[in-house]
Amino acid sequence: MQWLASIGRNTIDTVGAFGRAFLMLLGAVIAKPQLIKNTPLTIKQIYVVGVQSLLIIVVSGLFIGMVMALQGYTILVGYGAEGSLGPMVALSLLRELGPVVTALLFAGRAGSALTAEIGLMKATEQLSSLEMMAVDPLRRIVAPRLWAGIISMPMLAIIFSAVGILGGHVVGVDWLGVDAGSYWSIMQSSVDWNEDVVNGIIKTFVFAFVITWIAIFKGYDAIPTSEGISKATTETVVFSSLAVLGLDFILTALMFGIE
């Protein structure tokens, strides 16, 4: 009977957490917009979550593009189809790897930092102190971070894909000797703006929203002790990675699966 009770308790806790997460989102987003006050805050957060994640995104994008070109070449050359290297690299990056890998890196780099930051603000009573100063922490702390995440991550994903395609060019064309003209032209004939690029960007917006939401909520809802914050930070990375992979399957099925 013990385990039955614990299943029940966990279910109730989970549902309760969803409820609190949703209320937090409402409080942050539905709040009366204070554009003049919030824009500088949001810009600062874009710096923190976006610009500071740039290095890891560029380096990862470059290497992933290079590895894909290398792997793709060894497979394609067996069929005499190494000309299709360009579309292979571009399509996998734009449709799949760009959004997903960026999202996973973003969850690890920016998501965990957001959780820890907000959790520590809670633990050091900064959030309470804002409330006592009659400043709503949802608007002042949560909303700018939420917007910054939603704005930054798609930007990072675009940069990731572009750098990856260039990395593929470096390995495929400059090193392995695929014809540069065919790398680009066959890519152009198979990549479609709406179907591939726009769908990929839609994916990143969904991922960005989910990761930032989870990260902020985990920090906001963390138990304000060092143990609670470390648990919340771990959970942010685990939950948002799982959410990204699960949502990626659903979105891919919706976008590309049905003819």
């Binding site: 009573e125 900064q126 309470s128 006592m132 100063m133 009659a134």
Partner: peptide
């Protein structure tokens, strides 16, 4: 609440601002 204020045990200063900005914060907000 603008007529009350609380001094927290930890001080609860905002760690990402200077002391000056911390004290200017309620003035700039309200």
């Amino acid at each position: 609440r603008r007529q009350m204020s609380m001094l927290f045990q930890s001080g609860a200063l905002f760690t990402d601002m200077t002391v000056f900005d911390n004290i200017a914060f309620p003035l700039r907000e309200h």
